[in-house]
Design a protein around this nucleic acid. Structure first.
Length: 418
RNA sequence: GGAGCGAUCGCCUAGUCUGGUCGAGGGCGCCGCACUGGAAAUGCGGUAUACGGGGCAACUCGUAUCGAGGGUUCGAAUCCCUCUCGCUCCGCCA
């Protein structure tokens, strides 16, 4: 959330930055309501000050005249306060729809075609036989059961079986171990249902209501562990010494994939429910852009250990999401499909989420509370990692080799074969 | 789902019965100063946040906040109602 004061003072630059994202925001409306609201506030506070003064001067039982004066002033306060509160509520609501302006270092662009490849890693497989897509290999090896997934839950739900399930479990444990033992993250197991405030805190609501699954009791199925984990410290004050605070969580993720009708309907690519290991960092504002580079590196480590070629893209302004300040995507090469697959999205939010969720810290030197900066990144999305792994390590006979680093997590297996 | 108890300023706690002198006392922690060769201990002082107004600023004025919201009252941490969360017991349940 953009603070109202910043909006008042830097209106033009904020409008320009938001325009780079290709979004618009009700800034005119907010600022004109703000003028009214401040007038109303001055009037209410003036009346209240008079009332407080009169009250504290009074000690015994009030006279009838005093009572009458008090009563009429109270009535006035009530009316004007209601007007002021209505204005404030409207402003707060509109502010939740204002996107985070992108950082200066984000290249201007419209869509994914304008994203910038900052580096690539690994070499694409070069084999004398045709590489098949994962759904073909998986069918032979009994890794997926697409038909029954659809039968029990509908399209975009898949059942993993046998070595497919085992591979999923291995990848989760493998990723969590790297994050916790090498990169200093604390592992957390969050709830998969969260309250509305949490969804607002991370920026998933109110604007993107149609993307989320709603449960009873005003609870929402989490679209990513980012939501419960970032909100762990909502309404809290951290100590500066606690920063950077790094948490990693495995969770299932639930997304309606609204607006993706007909896209990636074949295979294990775009699902209503999928598994992901997510890294979340709460950091000092001065370090957040460096922290983003660190975070991307953590995600890359996983792919490097698995020996899967990938590229890192800096998202252009048009592909930088509503809440994000700056974002990198990591795409892994899926040789059977012959395309790059997004397996990680690493973002820094500045204080945008921290303001929404009210997550602050107490600096060592000054006593003045400040908002932390938040970051998160996939480390990694499981299904697409599994897809790339199966396609990358497939052999001519239809078996799939297990990369060395993953073998301990697969009970020592070196391959998946029929 | 039922019954009872509880929620106070980073942490612990006083205050609630008996409404005003309570934005709120004490301890711990933290910060500054003194003492010290340095430290510990000790002493003194300081130590919430948000918003609005005034000042370049240090600062200052106002409003609000004792889990949240509503009510009673001239006046609420304190009385009443609703909700949330926590704990204990009962029921149900993997």
């Amino acid at each position: 959330m953009i603070p109202l004061q910043r909006l008042r003072e830097n209106r033009e630059s904020i409008e320009q930055a938001i325009a780079r994202k290709g979004e618009d925001a009700p800034i005119d409306e907010i600022l004109s309501l703000d003028v009214e609201a401040r007038k109303a506030r001055a009037a209410v506070e003036q009346l209240k000050a008079e009332h407080n003064q009169a009250t504290s001067a009074m000690h015994g039982v009030p006279s009838p005249e005093d009572r009458a004066a008090m009563a009429s002033r109270k009535q006035k306060i009530k009316e004007q306060e209601a007007a002021m509160e209505a204005l404030d509520a409207k402003i707060q609501d509109l502010l939740l729809y204002v996107p985070n302006p992108p950082h200066e270092s984000v290249p201007t662009g419209k869509d994914e075609n304008d994203n910038v490849t900052v580096r690539t890693w690994g070499t694409l497989p070069n084999v004398p036989y045709a590489l098949r897509p994962h759904y073909d290999i998986g069918e032979q090896l009994g890794l997926f059961d697409f038909e029954r997934g659809a039968k029990i839950s509908g399209s975009r739900f898949t059942v993993l079986r046998g070595m497919g399930s085992r591979l999923e479990r291995a990848l989760i444990a493998f990723m969590l171990d790297i994050a916790t033992t090498e990169h200093g993250y604390e592992e957390v197991s969050p709830p998969y249902l969260v309250r509305r405030e949490c969804m607002v805190g991370t920026g998933n609501l109110p604007k993107f209501d149609e993307d989320a699954f709603h449960a009873d009791n005003d609870l929402f199925l989490i679209p990513t562990a980012e939501v419960p984990v970032t909100n762990l410290y909502r309404e809290e004050v951290l100590q500066e010494a606690q920063l950077p605070l790094a948490l990693v969580a495995y969770s299932a993720c639930f997304r309606k994939e609204a607006g993706a009708a007909g896209k990636d309907t074949k295979g294990f690519l775009r699902l209503h429910q999928f598994d992901k290991v997510e890294m979340v960092r709460f950091v000092h504002p001065d370090t957040s852009l460096d922290e983003l580079e660190l975070l991307v590196g953590h995600a890359e480590t996983v792919l490097q250990r698995l020996g899967l070629p990938y590229r890192v893209l800096l998202m252009c302004s048009g592909d930088t999401g509503f809440a994000q300040w700056k974002k990198y995507d990591i795409e892994v090469w899926a040789p059977g499909l012959g395309r790059w697959l997004e397996v990680s999205s690493c973002s820094v939010f500045g204080d945008f989420q921290a303001r929404r969720a009210n997550i602050r810290f107490r600096p060592k030197d000054s006593g003045k509370l400040q908002y932390v900066h938040t970051l998160n990144g996939s480390g990694l999305a499981i299904p697409r990692t599994l897809v790339a792994l199966v396609e990358h390590y497939q052999r001519e006979d239809g078996s799939v080799a297990i990369p060395d680093a993953l073998q301990p997590y697969m009970g020592g297996r070196t391959e998946i074969a029929r």
